[in-house]
């Protein structure tokens, strides 16, 4: 016989908040990628302003987890979910910060839109957007097939970033007048790469919820971490 638990409504509330946070961060990524592709400073400013709401959700989720730990003493899958919710929340907040950091670097690119396309930074943006759509689905459904996609896409983004880094360095050596903007692009590429890294953390957290095994530092060491 299944019991109704007051606890379940708290867990549902937490799950709802985590999905809300994830969707909000997704919007930030979609916007920042569009702002970068079109060098749209006003959209970039909107991304910067929206971060406040993400920070607000971050604190809400932390407090909710704290409350559940203190009052419900969760165990087993409940415990794993709440531990993971805290970690995922943290990762999402960092991803949100990175989206803001990218947004802040869009205005200086005003006169260099051609360079953005030539170096392929727009493609990395699109790939990151694509990868994060999988993160949203994974967080919503806990279907680990999305996790496999995330790992694969994160590895591709990492490779692309490496390629861009070498190209940008060559550009910087050859044309001293583009050093500042090229450095900016290099940083943006690295920020996208970090977003994909945090996304794999989220994949590990969901995998922990589902399977109960800690996979970080083990599973993807070959293709993600060096």
């Amino acid at each position: 016989m299944e019991n109704y638990r007051i606890f379940d409504s708290e867990l549902d509330r937490l799950a709802h908040k985590v999905i809300q946070m994830c969707s909000q961060v997704n919007l930030q990524i979609v916007d920042v990628v569009y702002a970068l592709n079109t060098i749209d400073s006003s959209l970039a400013k909107k991304v910067i302003a929206n971060d406040e709401y993400i920070n607000h959700l971050d604190v809400k989720i932390d407090k909710l987890c704290q409350k559940i730990f203190a009052l419900q003493q969760p165990v087993a899958s409940d415990l794993r979910y709440i531990i993971s919710a805290l970690k995922i929340n943290n990762d999402l907040e960092r991803i949100g910060d990175h989206a803001v950091s990218i947004a802040k670097r869009i205005e200086p690119l005003q006169d260099y839109s051609q360079m953005v396309t030539e170096l392929g930074i727009d493609k990395i943006g699109e790939k990151t957007k694509n990868l994060f759509a999988d993160v949203v689905e994974l967080v919503k459904t806990h279907n680990l097939d999305y996790g496999d996609q995330i790992i694969q896409k994160a590895a591709e983004i990492k490779d692309e970033c490496k390629k861009i880094s070498s190209t940008v360095l060559v550009e910087m050596m050859q044309q001293s007048e583009v050093v500042v903007v090229a450095a900016n692009i290099l940083i943006i590429a690295n920020l996208f790469e970090r977003i994909s890294g945090y996304s794999t953390n989220i994949e590990e957290s969901i995998s922990f919820v589902v399977n109960g095994e800690i996979v970080k530092h083990k599973k993807h060491s070959d293709n993600i971490n060096e």
């Binding site: 299944e2 019991n3 638990r5």
Partner: peptide, 11 residues
Amino acid sequence: QTEDYITGRFG
């Protein structure tokens, strides 16, 4: 069954 019991889902 263990999971359901220790998490208070039945019993």
